[in-house]
């Protein structure tokens, strides 16, 4: 993750409001669908899981892999995106 993606920047720039889960960096169409199936339809639901895991990277990555089968890069993108969002808005 040498440079942050456009999606990451957009997400981190503002409060997430009612953004869909697919607005999260690292979560695309496929992973977004899977997450929605499991009930994680909004970005803030994922944020809730992220927070209940105490922002622990290892656990969150683990969870993301379990829930939607994200690969290492996607896990990392999503994690850093949420963490930065928390840093600026929490």
């Amino acid at each position: 993750m040498s440079s942050t993606s456009q999606k990451h920047k957009e997400f981190v720039a503002e409060p997430m409001g009612e953004k869909s889960v697919m607005a999260l960096a690292g979560i695309g169409e496929v992973l977004g669908k899977r997450l929605e199936e499991k009930g994680f339809d909004k970005a803030y639901v994922v944020l809730g899981q992220f927070l209940v895991l105490k922002k622990d990277e290892e656990l969150f990555r683990d969870w993301l892999k379990d829930t939607c089968g994200a690969n290492a890069k996607q896990q990392g993108d999503c994690y850093s995106c949420l963490r930065e969002w928390c840093d600026s808005f929490l």
Partner: peptide, 17 residues
């Protein structure tokens, strides 16, 4: 390991850990 809240969505992860 200082575990966070162990609830339905996190328990499996903590078990694995």
């Amino acid at each position: 390991v200082k575990a966070g809240p162990i609830v339905g969505s996190t328990r499996a992860l903590y078990e694995r850990k």
